[in-house]
Computed example of a mutant assay.
Amino acid sequence: MAQEPEDPTQPRFVPPPRDVLPEINTVTWADIAAALTEGFADFRARAFMSGFFGLFYALFGLLIVWCLASLGKIWMIIPAAVGFPLVAPFAAAGLYEMSRRLQAGIPFGWGEILTVMADQRKREMGWMAFVTLFIFWVWMYQVRLWLALILKDSSFSDFEGFLQIVFFTPPGWTFLAIGTCVGAFLSAVLFTVTVIAMPMLMDREIDFISAMLVSVQVVKENPVVMLGWAAVISVAMLISMIPAFLGLIVTLPVLGHTTWHLYRRAVQPA
Rank of each mutant, 00 (worst) to 15 (best):
W139Q: 07
F60I: 09
E4N: 10
N25K: 02
L248T: 08
F13K: 12
L227Y: 15
I135A: 03
W29Q: 08
F175H: 10
F136K: 02
Q3R: 12
A129R: 05
I209A: 07
T115M: 04
Q268W: 07
T9F: 05
V138F: 11
A80E: 06
E6Y: 13
I178C: 11
E6F: 14
R121T: 04
L63N: 04
I206S: 06
R44E: 08
V65A: 15
L145I: 14
T180D: 07
N222W: 04
M241R: 11
S155D: 11
R144G: 15
I113K: 01
A34T: 14
V65N: 13
S157F: 12
A188W: 01
L151S: 04
E124G: 04
S70E: 14
Q164K: 12
W110M: 02
L163F: 09
R121W: 01
T180V: 11
C181G: 15
P22F: 07
P89E: 02
V27Y: 02
P17N: 11
M128Q: 14
V189I: 14
I64C: 05
F185T: 07
V87C: 04
V116P: 00
Y57S: 07
D153K: 03
L186S: 03
V20N: 04
A93S: 14
Y263Q: 04
V254N: 01
Q164P: 00
V65L: 10
I233F: 11
K220C: 06
H257L: 12
T115L: 05
F191G: 02
V138D: 01
W146Y: 15
A58W: 03
T194A: 13
T174A: 05
A34M: 09
G256H: 06
L248M: 13
L62D: 12
Q164I: 04
M237A: 05
E112K: 10
I32S: 00
D31E: 03
F134G: 03
V166D: 06
T251A: 14
W139R: 05
A93V: 14
I32P: 00
S157C: 09
V195I: 15
L262V: 05
D7L: 06
L246D: 00
I24A: 08
R12Y: 07
R46E: 09
G72V: 11
I233V: 15
E160C: 04
A129C: 00
G111R: 00
L133W: 02
K220W: 15
R44T: 12
F185R: 01
A230T: 10
M98D: 01
A69N: 14
I74Y: 06
W229Q: 05
I32F: 06
K152G: 12
A230L: 14
W229L: 04
P269C: 13
M202K: 08
D203H: 14
L213T: 03
F167M: 15
L145K: 09
I113L: 04
M125R: 05
Y141Q: 10
F134H: 00
S215N: 05
G109M: 02
L149R: 10
W29P: 06
V267G: 13
I196H: 00
P243G: 06
L68I: 09
F156L: 01
V254C: 03
P223A: 09
H261W: 03
D203F: 06
R12M: 03
L238T: 11
P253Y: 08
M198K: 08
F43W: 13
G172A: 14
V20R: 08
P253Q: 08
A81L: 15
A184P: 05
I113N: 02
I106L: 07
V138L: 14
P16L: 08
R144W: 02
E23A: 15
P16M: 01
I135P: 00
R265M: 10
R123L: 10
